[in-house]
């Protein structure tokens, strides 16, 4: 019986997939696992290379091929449909887990059982490294204390990244499915849905970074990102309103900052300035705080 299904969406990057698979092979956790890769309509050459990578791996891998490029949310829903192990974890092709990730997260689950908590209402996230091209890895702490819904909307202390997670299949059913309207930020919507449905994120006692995210904004449309934020804010408007108008303005200001970063990293400097200006208009205090923070980080 497979205990853990590892879910990987893949598109046109077989060498990135190889890197991720290697990090799964190196896990210290000894339970039985299966990797499910949904290839989202990669070009023929890349698909062939992907098949080679899978053949060469010692892991138990199931490859599901989409005949056309459906986009990330639909691919993730396909992965959910294919999974049937009692536990699920996610990884994006190109990102890696450090060797103790899954064991540390399972230990956290056992600890939850020991405390008498319901494992089906918890997701185990973890601290991670954030690596921009040409820069050193930077550790990012996931802080699970406090109002998690609030923290997810702002995303400064608790961030919505699927590849940090381990949980029971039932816990993932709590968040339902990925919103197929969201070409970007479907993780954020998924996390918010989970917490709104009574779910809670916890972190393992191992406070080291347990995975690494190789970050790139290149080729990602800033306006699309900002549009996805709007969709999420509209969808979860009732939850946002509960925190009051000041908080809503803060969440919008943060969204503008993220869109500004994407625009800047794609050399759309005018657009980047416009988003920043908008962020200042929405919440000047928060905008100043962000500006100070980015100056401190260089």
């Amino acid at each position: 019986m497979t205990t853990l299904d590892v879910l990987i969406p893949h598109y046109n990057d077989s060498s990135a997939l190889a890197l991720s698979l290697e990090s799964i092979e190196n896990q210290t956790w000894a339970g039985s696992k299966r990797v499910i890769v949904v290839d989202d309509g990669s070009e023929r050459d890349e698909l062939q290379k992907t098949e080679q990578v899978i053949l060469q791996s010692s892991l138990n891998i199931e490859l599901i091929k989409s005949p056309e490029n459906l986009g990330r949310p639909k691919t993730r829903n396909k992965l959910l449909d294919a999974a049937d192990a009692p536990f699920l974890a996610w990884l994006d092709a190109g990102d890696i887990w450090y060797k103790d990730k899954i064991q540390s997260q399972f230990n956290c689950l056992y600890d939850l059982v020991h405390k008498g908590d319901d494992v089906d209402t918890h997701w185990i996230t973890c601290n991670y490294d954030w690596k921009w091209e040409g820069k050193r890895r930077r550790k990012v702490d996931q802080i699970a204390r406090g109002d998690q819904l609030k923290e997810l909307f702002i995303g400064d202390k608790l961030r919505a990244y699927l590849w940090t997670l381990l949980g029971t299949r039932k816990s993932f059913e709590r968040a339902a499915r990925f919103d197929e309207r969201l070409l970007r930020l479907q993780d954020l919507d998924y996390f918010i849905s989970f917490v709104r449905a009574g779910g809670r994120l916890v972190t393992p006692s191992n406070r080291n970074s347990l995975c690494c995210y190789f970050k790139s904004d290149i080729g990602r449309n800033a306006a699309e990102i900002r549009g996805c934020y709007n969709t999420i804010f509209n969808k979860h408007n009732a939850a946002l309103l509960e925190f009051g108008p000041t908080f809503t303005q803060r969440a919008k200001s943060k969204a503008d900052f993220v869109a500004s970063r994407f625009a800047k990293n794609n050399s759309e400097h005018g657009l980047a300035m416009a988003y920043k200006f908008h962020a200042f208009k929405s919440d000047p205090r928060y905008a100043l705080f962000r500006l100070k923070q980015s100056l401190n980080q260089g």
């Binding site: 000894a30 339970g31 009692p86 399972f106 056992y110 600890d111 059982v113």
Partner: peptide, 19 residues
Amino acid sequence: SRLINAAGYAMKYDFADDK
């Protein structure tokens, strides 16, 4: 008693099929 309960849970999931 929760410790034993959790141990049973851990035993079920933490071991390779041949262990």
